[in-house]
Simulated scan of single mutants.
Amino acid sequence: MSCAATAGLPHVDADTPAVLVLPGSVTRAEVAGLCADVRTLLDGGGAAVVVCDVAGLGPPGLRTVDLLARLELAARRAGGRIRLRGPEPALCALLDLVGLRFQVEGQAEEREPARGVEEAVETGDPAA
């Protein structure tokens, strides 16, 4: 049995996120290239979300906050968004401190209840 190779990128549906692994230290000159990578993944890949693996970024600082803000801006301009994979608690606290909100992989969105949580109904409550 044989299979002919197809030209072009493999098919990726809109629900499958693209992944961008961020290197340990990102220089100011590399930020523009990473923003271009985000735009390319959103435009060419057909995904609506780019997952940024930040586990290897090292200790968080304002340079990391600037990088993530620029990546989010590039994603929004391309019609998508970024989601963080593997952030340290210190990075989450720093992002919260400066007022940036990112969706973290594995966390429920604000409007969604956490998995396994069900709404309880009191027996004395009148039906709505």
Rank of each mutant, 00 (worst) to 15 (best):
D15N: 09
G33C: 00
V49G: 05
G124C: 08
P59L: 12
L41T: 03
V51N: 09
E88Q: 12
L62H: 10
R76T: 13
L9F: 11
E105G: 06
V31K: 11
E122L: 15
R85Y: 04
L57F: 04
G61T: 02
D13I: 04
R81W: 07
A14R: 12
T40S: 13
A48I: 03
A128D: 12
G58I: 03
D13R: 10
R111G: 15
L73M: 12
S2I: 12
G116E: 09
P10T: 06
S25I: 10
C52T: 15
L71E: 04
A74R: 03
D15A: 14
P17A: 10
D37T: 14
E118I: 11
D96W: 07
A93R: 12
P10M: 05
L34Q: 04
E112G: 01
R101T: 13
G61F: 03
H11Q: 12
E122M: 10
V98E: 06
V121S: 11
A69D: 13
V38T: 09
A29G: 01
A4G: 09
F102A: 04
A120I: 13
E88F: 01
G33D: 14
D66A: 14
A108W: 00
A14D: 11
T64R: 10
E109V: 08
M1T: 12
L97C: 02
A78H: 04
A14I: 08
R81F: 00
A114W: 08
A114I: 07
A120Q: 12
E109C: 07
L91G: 05
Q103K: 05
E105S: 11
I82Q: 02
P113Y: 01
R28Y: 11
E88M: 06
R77L: 15
T16C: 11
G99F: 07
A74Q: 06
R70E: 13
L34W: 03
D125M: 10
G80V: 02
R111D: 14
L34H: 06
R39H: 02
G106D: 01
V65M: 09
E72S: 14
G8V: 03
V49S: 03
G56T: 13
R111S: 14
G44W: 07
D37S: 15
Q107E: 15
G56L: 14
P10L: 07
E30C: 00
V21C: 10
V117M: 08
R28T: 13
R76G: 09
R85E: 10
L73N: 02
A7D: 12
R83D: 01
A75V: 05
A78I: 04
E110T: 12
P60N: 09
A47N: 03
A75K: 06
A32V: 13
L73T: 14
C35R: 14
E109D: 12
P89I: 02
G116S: 05
L67M: 05
L22E: 01
L68S: 08
E72N: 12
T40H: 13
F102M: 02
A7N: 04
A4I: 08
G58T: 04
L95N: 11
V50A: 08
L42T: 06
P89F: 00
D43L: 12
G24C: 01
A93I: 02
C92D: 03
D37P: 02
